[in-house]
């Protein structure tokens, strides 16, 4: 079994005189939930389309689940929810899933079981016999998600899977992604909702002008060696005690009831807390301020629009 679910090397796509993807080099590990972030026009959708074989790359190579791009046997192990989730809306929900399952060449019994299971999972079981044109945007996205999971794929591409969903629907998608991860499925998630990515993904790639500019591990977003601010809520802080904090903190200031410190090493936190307690301060909380994904996004990608 290859260790990477997705491996691309300088994948490039040009449309006439427009370079949509300059050179995508990326490695997604088996079984991880991988976020794909970038401003509008950064080439995210074109990149996904190249990986799925909808668009042929101008140059570069890629392997999915160990096979080169366009391999049909590999496609049988992949699922895809497209961004605009436009489906044949004259089909009934059950028919839609059955027909797509047949395109996977799934055995009739297994398919019947999967369709029922998935309609149940996405909360559409009562709408099995309803034509898709009667569905709301959110329902369409749900049935599209069910479609992407029909074949119990090893690799799923979800392009903006929550764009049409309300908070309940978003929660559902999050739970589904968590279950997929538990089953060892690799999930490639393209989303504009940074909070979504922050909650669900293991790692995230930032792309700009069709190139990966950074890949970050979301579990350790505090970059090593970089300054982190810490908010301390405590009473009984004397000016002496505060002055004494300078041995760990580069900058110390009072922000309302909170004391804000800037430290360079997280390892200083236990020592620092002991110091406060030993000097008689009542400590309620010591919270390192994680860099939010939004801050990181803006820092990496910049604020200028890439259209």
């Amino acid at each position: 079994m290859p260790s990477f679910a997705i491996e691309t090397h300088h994948l490039r796509k040009e449309f006439d005189d427009n370079i949509a993807v300059r050179g995508l080099t990326l490695e997604v590990k088996q079984g991880e939930v991988f976020g794909f972030l970038g401003p509008n026009g950064a080439g995210k959708t074109t990149s996904i389309k190249m990986l799925l074989g909808l668009v042929s790359p101008t140059a570069g190579q890629a392997q999915l689940l160990g096979a080169p791009l366009g391999d049909r046997a590999t496609r049988a192990r992949m699922g895809f929810l497209p961004e605009h989730f436009r489906f044949h809306d004259w089909l009934k929900a059950g028919e839609f899933l059955t027909l797509h399952g047949q395109l996977y060449d799934m055995a009739t019994d297994r398919l019947r079981r999967r369709v029922t299971e998935l309609l149940e999972l996405v909360g559409l079981a009562p709408f099995r016999e309803k034509q898709l044109h009667t569905f709301s945007k959110g329902m369409l996205q749900r049935v599209g998600l069910a479609q992407a999971l029909l074949n119990e794929p090893a690799l799923v591409f979800l392009d903006e899977p929550t764009s049409g969903l309300d908070p309940v629907g978003r929660r559902l998608v999050r739970d589904i992604i968590r279950d997929l991860r538990a089953q060892g499925t690799t999930v490639f998630l393209n989303s504009h909702l940074l909070s979504e990515i922050e909650i669900t993904c293991d790692r995230v790639a930032f792309i700009k002008h069709g190139e990966v500019v950074q890949v970050s591990d979301l579990n350790t977003l505090i970059a090593e060696g970089e300054a982190t601010s810490v908010a301390i809520r405590a009473t009984g802080l004397t000016p002496e005690i505060i002055a004494g904090l300078s041995q760990w903190s580069q900058e110390t200031r009072l922000d309302g009831p909170q004391l804000m410190l800037t430290i360079t090493d997280e390892a200083a936190l236990p020592t620092l807390t002991r110091y406060l307690v030993e000097r008689g301060a009542q400590v309620y909380s010591v919270i390192p301020q994680k860099l939010s994904l939004e801050d990181l996004f803006i820092r990496i990608v910049g604020t200028e629009g890439v259209l």
């Binding site: 497209p82 436009r86 044949h88 797509h100 060449d105």
Partner: peptide, 14 residues
């Protein structure tokens, strides 16, 4: 044009 082809063409069908 509508994009309905995308779910069909990403299946293992030629």
């Amino acid at each position: 044009g509508s994009g309905t082809i995308q779910t069909l063409a990403t299946k293992p069908a030629r």
